[in-house]
Amino acid sequence: MPDARPDDTDLPVQRQLTLDLGTPPPATFDNFFAAGNHEVIARLRELEGALAAGPVADRTFYVWGEPGSGRSHLLQALTHEANGHARYLSPQSALNAFGFDPRVTLYAIDDCDRLSPAQQIALFNLFNEVRAHPTSALVATGNDAPLALTVREDLRTRLGWGLVFHLQPLSDDAKASVLKHAARERGIVLAEDVPGYLLTHFRRDMPSLMALLDELDRFSLEQKRAVTRPLLRAMLQQTGRAAPLASIATDDPPAQTPAADSACAAPDNAPTRFK
């Protein structure tokens, strides 16, 4: 008779609590690093209140930027702070979720460029419904400006009708600041040299950097140690990723290799608020 495999109830209580503590904080406007994007943040932050106060001239928005620019973060912040009157939609959403509901004030549609043909038709219809109802608004995001989007022509035209904002990419200094701020939110004791080291030796896009920080957060809680370069090395060894990054123990910055690049990358289809 084979040995019974222990289920989650057999894990030590302390370990379960430690894993629970590693949950990243929700996306908000306060924890979005504005950089050069103050106008779009102000517009989105005030949108729900403006709708409640009366007629709003600009009720459709399209926000675009490169991967890691924070498009998903802004949409999730919008829905998080909308008091239950917003609906977040993405390529993973069911087709019927794109239907208009008069009880929904804000529609937030992520990754328009990845919507299926049927979802694109549904979004086109939703866009028209929102335009016909002055108490609702729609905010969509994509990876390129409206004219360059690989979507239906009629949907591309609709997305360009309203206000269009291009999210400015973060500099390396800004990315380091984001990592430090995210660490403080999680209560992580982060060594001063860790953000710069991550930017030098790993993938530099924010989804990958934040995925690595979240992994370090969980590992540091389990180990009850501050996040330092030795802790990073220990985590990589435990997860079987130490070989491509063996030089991490030295102070000489090695050239980034494809193996190191892929080892710490966030999967392209992984849900993240840092797109």
Rank of each mutant, 00 (worst) to 15 (best):
256 Q>C: 12
12 P>R: 13
248 I>K: 00
253 P>N: 08
169 P>R: 05
229 R>W: 00
33 F>W: 12
104 V>Y: 08
121 I>G: 09
234 A>T: 05
211 A>E: 06
166 H>G: 11
166 H>E: 14
175 K>T: 08
70 G>R: 00
63 V>A: 06
185 E>A: 13
163 L>C: 11
103 R>V: 15
229 R>E: 01
129 E>V: 07
253 P>G: 05
273 R>F: 05
119 Q>R: 10
70 G>D: 01
261 D>C: 09
52 A>P: 04
95 L>N: 07
226 A>M: 05
88 Y>A: 08
205 D>G: 01
203 R>P: 10
47 L>N: 00
56 V>T: 13
233 R>N: 03
191 A>Q: 08
33 F>I: 08
94 A>Y: 13
199 L>S: 05
205 D>R: 01
73 H>I: 06
265 A>G: 09
200 T>A: 15
57 A>G: 11
195 P>D: 06
266 A>K: 04
193 D>I: 10
99 G>S: 11
105 T>C: 13
91 P>V: 10
248 I>D: 00
183 A>K: 03
57 A>Q: 14
183 A>W: 01
117 P>I: 12
103 R>N: 14
236 L>N: 01
161 W>C: 08
173 D>N: 13
132 A>Y: 10
85 H>N: 12
225 R>N: 10
256 Q>H: 12
155 L>N: 04
83 N>F: 12
82 A>K: 03
209 L>G: 01
134 P>A: 13
123 L>P: 01
74 L>D: 02
165 F>C: 07
252 D>I: 08
265 A>S: 15
229 R>M: 04
243 A>F: 10
275 K>F: 14
269 N>T: 15
266 A>M: 12
60 T>C: 05
258 P>Q: 09
190 L>K: 00
91 P>W: 07
206 M>K: 02
1 M>I: 13
182 A>V: 04
173 D>S: 14
172 D>H: 13
238 Q>T: 11
158 R>F: 05
177 S>N: 11
215 E>F: 07
228 T>R: 00
44 L>A: 07
115 L>A: 04
107 Y>K: 03
63 V>W: 02
230 P>T: 03
147 L>D: 14
36 G>K: 15
153 E>P: 02
45 R>S: 12
2 P>A: 14
165 F>L: 09
78 L>S: 08
171 S>E: 09
162 G>E: 03
219 F>H: 09
101 D>S: 12
171 S>H: 06
206 M>S: 04
230 P>S: 06
157 T>M: 11
93 S>I: 05
15 R>L: 15
83 N>Y: 11
132 A>L: 14
174 A>N: 09
164 V>I: 15
73 H>E: 05
106 L>G: 00
90 S>R: 04
64 W>M: 04
199 L>G: 03
63 V>C: 07
170 L>N: 00
194 V>S: 02
41 I>T: 10
157 T>R: 09
161 W>F: 12
13 V>I: 13
126 L>M: 09
242 A>M: 08
44 L>Y: 09
247 S>P: 03
90 S>W: 03
21 L>Q: 11
173 D>V: 15
135 T>V: 10
274 F>A: 03
127 F>V: 04
196 G>E: 07
144 D>A: 15
183 A>P: 03
47 L>C: 04
206 M>F: 06
29 F>Y: 10
82 A>Q: 04
268 D>R: 15
225 R>Y: 09
193 D>M: 11
219 F>I: 08
137 A>F: 06
188 I>G: 02
144 D>K: 08
39 E>T: 15
